Amino acid sequence: MSADGIDLMIVLPAFAAGLLVLATHIPLGAQVLRRGIVFIDLAIAQIAALGVIAAGSLDFDPHGWTVQVAAGVAAVLGALLLTWTEKRWPDVQEAQIGVLFVLAATAGLLLLAHNPHGGEHMQDLLAGQILWVSYDQLILPAIGAVPILAVLAAFHNSLGRLGFYLVFALAVTASVQLVGVYLVFATLIVPSLAVRHYPERRRLPIAYLVGIAGFAAGLVLSVLIDLPSGALIVWCLALLAMLVHALGPDRPVPS
């Protein structure tokens, strides 16, 4: 397929979904790195995915608000549990996050064990189906992103442990269903890694540019060469992040 043949009716809603996810995940990813709890996003994303699977096993409408609620409740419960474990055993918090991720992932496998389409459903939740997102699916996540961005702007780096985990859980809930677990992790961590040695005032703008360019390149390539969009976006994000990091300062510099 030539570049002129790209179906913008497919690419543009997917790109809009990517922008919506990046809006909240770039600042959250910066805080994740600052707090040193890198794998929290995988754990919370997997718990939200478990909520989606549980809702599906109860025959809820896969595109209805009940699935959003189920995913949100699961993610918030996971956030509350991680808040408690960090307070109780802070020295092993990263290990506890890993254990919670494994438990959520295997619980999903058990719930889907007798579902004839279980493997396909699990793949959709992990790798996502961003290329087939519709504008209607973006309405609720867009509404939810507004208070999340407001809280992040108001409190910046002063969010407490519980507040951070709850905001994080709510942000991840919607994005998992839009782009999948892998892209949730990539959008949170990869752009922030790319700019960690840049002056602080430049980190967010450059991280946003890395994210936007990564989504755009991955979506266009997925249409041109007919490969899975989610996987291509992850690779585009990673390659762009490596380039941006290589072009940046060699060590932290004063803001």
Rank of each mutant, 00 (worst) to 15 (best):
L19T: 05
L80N: 00
I53G: 01
G51N: 09
A70P: 06
L80P: 01
V92K: 13
A75I: 05
F60V: 11
L42H: 02
F39I: 01
G119I: 07
D61H: 10
A74G: 10
R34G: 14
F15P: 00
I97M: 14
A113K: 15
G98P: 04
K87D: 07
G108L: 01
G56V: 03
K87N: 09
L111A: 04
G98I: 12
F15E: 01
A107K: 04
V102Y: 07
A48R: 01
A16G: 05
L19F: 11
Q46T: 14
F15H: 02
G18A: 06
D41P: 00
R34I: 04
V76S: 07
T85R: 15
R34S: 13
A54I: 08
I40S: 01
R35L: 05
E94F: 11
L112V: 11
G98E: 06
A113E: 15
D91G: 13
L111Q: 06
A75H: 06
V67E: 00
V76R: 07
V99N: 05
L19A: 08
H63I: 06
A107V: 03
P116E: 13
A45T: 08
A79S: 07
A54D: 04
P116T: 12
A16Y: 09
Q96G: 12
H121C: 02
T106C: 05
A45M: 07
P90R: 10
L109Q: 08
A95T: 14
L20D: 00
I26S: 01
A43C: 12
V92Q: 14
V67K: 00
G78F: 10
A17W: 10
I47S: 00
H63P: 02
L110Q: 09
T83V: 12
L58H: 05
A74L: 11
A55P: 02
L109C: 08
P90S: 13
